[in-house]
Design a protein around this nucleic acid. Sequence first.
DNA 1: GTGAAAGCGCTAACAG
DNA 2: CTGTTAGCGCTTTCAC
Lengths: 365, 365
Amino acid sequence: MSRRVEKVEDLGGKPGEKAARLIEVANLANVSRATAARALGGYGRVNEDTRRRVTVAASALNYRTNEVARAMRHGRTSTIGVVIADISNSFFNSAIRAIIDTAAHVGYQVLVINTDDEVEREIEAVRVLTEKRVDGLIVAPSSPARYQHLAADHLALPLVLLDRRIPGLPVDTVTTDDRRGAIEAIDLLIARGHTKIGLLVASAAVRNYSRNQPEFVVSTTQDRVAGARFAMARSGLALRDAWVRYSEGNVTSATEAAVSILGQKSRPTAVLTTNEEMACGLLAACRQLNLLIGKDVSLISFDDWPWASVFAPAISVVKRPIYDLGKAAVTQLVLQIKTGATGKPIELPSRLIDRESVLDVKGKK
Amino acid sequence: MSRRVEKVEDLGGKPGEKAARLIEVANLANVSRATAARALGGYGRVNEDTRRRVTVAASALNYRTNEVARAMRHGRTSTIGVVIADISNSFFNSAIRAIIDTAAHVGYQVLVINTDDEVEREIEAVRVLTEKRVDGLIVAPSSPARYQHLAADHLALPLVLLDRRIPGLPVDTVTTDDRRGAIEAIDLLIARGHTKIGLLVASAAVRNYSRNQPEFVVSTTQDRVAGARFAMARSGLALRDAWVRYSEGNVTSATEAAVSILGQKSRPTAVLTTNEEMACGLLAACRQLNLLIGKDVSLISFDDWPWASVFAPAISVVKRPIYDLGKAAVTQLVLQIKTGATGKPIELPSRLIDRESVLDVKGKK
DNA sequence: GTGAAAGCGCTAACAG
DNA sequence: CTGTTAGCGCTTTCAC
């Protein structure tokens, strides 16, 4: 029964001890819990001298507010939940960095859960985070078809969708302008004389890789493919299915997919890839097939990484404002938490950075 | 006052509503809270029929356990805190992926905080996580000198150190064998005939970059440099200070540091870099100086990334078992949480992968 | 300026 | 097998 500090010499939070409670601080300072709370919390009126006594007592006992108890009382945890496919993926880790830092800045901590884009795990993640009573949720939804668990009648929690829209789920969403990004990339390729253009598209909706567009792809993917198709058509060209592949998000699958594009008798002279992993796969395939990037095959990829500009040739990219995206997601969410206001969808512009991986083939036909 | 469900038609957790509480489930099922808790929690004895009624009531109300209340009651949150330098850094994001997944597997969620290797932020992070009453902490300590906030008399929480030992802080620690990793790398270089060897070392203890070893570097860095020095000495060679640089962790600083090594009249023929960012910097410098990797300058780097094997030439690396490292950290921590047992320090072996970036210069002297 | 007491939602010890 | 009740640690009226 004597699991609490009993002797004065025992102050200071030694190893085996339980953390000091407010009442211990209050006792030591000879005030009531209410007064101690006021002194420490900095609200209400407290005599300056009393405040000092409490402060001293608190630090003597190495007192730390119990945020669990406070959360219970207030009904808010100052914690937000983030549900994404894979934190080790290059896109998500930049986004999360922004989310954690922005959240910390306004007094929230972040719980992260990976789903590998499997809906069942996403549902489970949302359940766990709901039970933990996070104040809000940032989710990169894995499927545009199964989203009941995110709908307002199942989820009574502020919610922001990250990177992917869900038509039919009218909630705050922050994305980049993927359609325009794809259009600009294709336009550059065409301007340089390319007409035979391939697409290597990351999609969790596929096993290994596939020639055909899966039934349900996330809006990001959808938009990019549609954008590419539009840009081609506008120039009187067509995207040939033989040069389009949907691949699982890992480099191994991407490599196989890329080989199946570039290994054909008739192969494209340029390829647009949708992320770092796809770009790696394309590079690996070129290696295998003895094709030179920026010569035999030109390349533009979505997203940017430190090594893209160090590679030989330096890789041209559609750079997305990932940090800003994460930041915007938190800003929207916190606004929603505090005011209940749900804003307009936010779409951030991306920027084409032309480096050295796109060969000019004008007049070489 | 009527903020609770009052009409039967209102069931199901509509938007504005507060989450259903246990007592509401109990009422709907016509049992007491205790019985409802037993039925839902699956402990104690409950009549099968009663259980069913409770289950039905719970799902009708879309009831979710309030883990905050449960945490309050039990004194544990099923949450662990992770304090690292930067989640977008290639090493940490792999480690975190392992940590989150392993933790989820045994029923814990993860709060992540970035410090950018600034001790003040580390101290603050530990404070916040302590207040949130996490059950344990995984920390990659930023300084081997300032660690009072992690010492047992300040921190009454299970703790595991990740990737970096702190002499003088005898707590569970999981690291890789960095000394041996460096030795093997240097030995390979020497075996291929290199004698003029440089070092590009990431260190947060430095601004931009520096020729001299900062006063306090983390054990990881310390071990690698010592290992390299040892391997050189064993072969009768010396590490020349002129070819050693300590750089801030970003590619920009690394590039400048690398240029300052390779731009000298007398430059090394091989360089060992300590992570992806340093390797990028070296590559960038070679580009600037018109030096060819694997020809003019050979390269081995710590850690491995998808693009390392796709680069031309493919980059040789000391691959560390990062996923296992994160996994081990969680395993140790959970053991500590559950049994109080603190194990032996764990040191995982790394593996040298020789690809194409080390030129054989034997006999070419 | 300070204290007494209620209560956030849940669980577990104890009765019945 | 089920109900009653105390209490986790904190904040916050409401009195004094």
